Simulated scan of single mutants.
Amino acid sequence: MAPGYVIALCLEGAGAVGFGIGLWARYVERRARAAELARFLRSGQTGDPVPARTRPVPMPRPAPPTRIRTAATPAVRVDPSDALLALRSAYAVPTG
């Protein structure tokens, strides 16, 4: 065989070996990630989706009371629940 064919075969073989090593490394990395995710899910810990410095600032004043009108009573004053206050403070738009 001519030397050019031998060199080409060696380069093709090296490329195939490199491709195989790359596939093997990708497989090992995916298995490690899956094992890490499974370990995290089994631990029962909850991740903090919002870092502390980007959390919304709570509202400085309470929400206004809600008035419900029915046929029996003209106006009944109902204070907002804790859940409603938490929702309002979570989605408060900062002014200024």
Results as ranks from 00 to 15, higher is better:
A86T: 07
L87P: 00
D82V: 14
V76C: 07
A16I: 07
A32N: 08
G22S: 11
R69N: 06
G18T: 03
L85D: 02
P94K: 01
V76W: 03
Q45Y: 04
L9S: 13
R42N: 08
F40P: 00
R88T: 00
A8D: 08
E36N: 10
A34W: 03
A86F: 05
A32V: 04
A32Q: 13
A63R: 02
A52R: 11
T54M: 15
A90H: 11
P58S: 01
P65Q: 04
R55D: 03
Y27D: 15
T70Q: 12
R26I: 05
P94C: 01
S89N: 03
A92E: 00
L37V: 09
A63N: 04
G13C: 06
M59P: 03
R55V: 03
S43E: 08
P65E: 07
P65R: 05
P74Y: 01
R53M: 08
A38C: 04
A25N: 10
Q45K: 13
R77K: 14
A34R: 15
I68A: 12
E29G: 02
G47Q: 06
R30K: 09
P51T: 00
L41E: 15
A2E: 10
R53I: 05
G15E: 12
G96V: 02
C10Y: 04
R77M: 11
G20M: 02
V93S: 10
S81M: 02
G4K: 12
A14W: 03
G22D: 04
A14F: 03
G15N: 11
P62C: 06
R42V: 03
A2T: 12
V28K: 13
I7S: 11
P62L: 08
A2D: 15
R30Q: 11
R31N: 10
V28W: 02
D79R: 09
M1G: 15
V28Q: 13
A25W: 13
A52H: 10
L87F: 10
L85Y: 00
Y27M: 11
G18A: 14
R33M: 09
R88K: 14
G18C: 10
A86E: 15
R61F: 05
P60L: 03
R33Y: 02
E36M: 07
T66R: 14
R33T: 03
P3K: 14
R88I: 03
G4M: 07
V28R: 15
A35M: 07
R31F: 00
Y27S: 15
I7A: 14
V17F: 11
Q45T: 09
